[in-house]
Design a protein around this nucleic acid. Sequence first.
DNA 1: CAAATATAATAGTATTACTATCAATATAGA
DNA 2: TCTATATTGATAGTAATACTATTATATTTG
Lengths: 223, 223
Amino acid sequence: MEIILSNLKMQVNEKIYVKDPETSALGKKILEQSILLIDEIGFDNFTFKKLGEKIGSNESSIYRYFENKHKLLVYLSSWYWSWMEYKLVFSTTNILDKKEKLKKAITIVTEKITHDALADHINEAILNKIIIAEFTKTLHTKEVDQENKEGFFLIYKRVINRIVLIVKEVNPEYPFARSLVSTIVEGSLHQHFLTDHLKTITDCNETVTTTQFYLNLAENALR
Amino acid sequence: MEIILSNLKMQVNEKIYVKDPETSALGKKILEQSILLIDEIGFDNFTFKKLGEKIGSNESSIYRYFENKHKLLVYLSSWYWSWMEYKLVFSTTNILDKKEKLKKAITIVTEKITHDALADHINEAILNKIIIAEFTKTLHTKEVDQENKEGFFLIYKRVINRIVLIVKEVNPEYPFARSLVSTIVEGSLHQHFLTDHLKTITDCNETVTTTQFYLNLAENALR
DNA sequence: CAAATATAATAGTATTACTATCAATATAGA
DNA sequence: TCTATATTGATAGTAATACTATTATATTTG
């Protein structure tokens, strides 16, 4: 997987950026360091000025890549879900047993990422932390319908619909495949968040994992 | 229920506000009109200046009730979950059958609110819309641990833990009661959001409801 | 009626979220 | 290698945001 992924460029909708950050050293630096800075101070306190200082670049240079910080977060999220899609496709294609295939898929999307490091300038473990803490903000805006039309969330939706297909293979009669999968994908981010911050309303921790909870939930739902 | 609730003051942690908005006409106007304005323009575009203009009051007067707009959103959320707790307790106390009790509880927390109007200055249907669109933002901040310590999310957690108790009555062996309930409560807000904005990744709509999906999910999980 | 309290009006600061302009530098092509 | 072009950096500036402080004016209460 490492060989394949390190040669692949994650696909991100062109409308998200002004200039493709993967095409220059500065662009890659923006991606790399914005992940670290958002993780450090949180997306709400994150500004292009602070990022400029961190990378020794001017604020105005960053604006040449992204219109605003929201679009940067949408970009990072798209990158993340594109990466997730590769992991998903790669790990499930050769599994013949349908139930095993679904198990693998659920494991991939619900696991906490701890040490993957396939693209040199993107730290996937920290990006996963950002997705857990901030992904919801990419959707919860007044512009969501417009941005959805423009395809900003295509990859995210495609990841979900790929798993929906696997669910339908396991149980074609189950009437809530899409809601089940979107609940698992979004819910697992939420459970990770609760494990980190509101432990009294989750059972997930180091020993009982989010993955176990959702494997159990899906298995019971599709029986 | 109407008589009881209209005489009850929802409990909200004192640390959330500077001055209790329920104690004055201006305070109530702030609550009433902030709900309408946040629904109209979205929380990100909402400012105390705009709210001041809307209610014919000065920005500085609003700051005497709430330190900032984040605390106002936390207040509105607490009010909402406090109201939800009353509905929950009131509707489930006299149900003896455990499964029926759980069904009722899940129905209460997953239903879309369309016409309740119990507190004269708070429009619960619009508040429910705000909770669907914006509640996640009260939790996803860098200050979440500090604010959790100060009790900002107590009522929300209490609502979840009340339902957890009912789940445990239905099936004491089930090992994921807290995660199941937090998934249902948060997930149903998410499914409502998807129904409104990303229809391709949900099965919930006017005919197949979010409530039906979660009733089915919980029933299968606890079998 | 006086005292206390609440609200309004005004002004001011620091930060944010940009945009515009121009100079410096790197790069790529002829 | 020279030159044109693209890229980045530096500076400046604007409008809006997120407040704080002060003082004046109502309003309530004792």
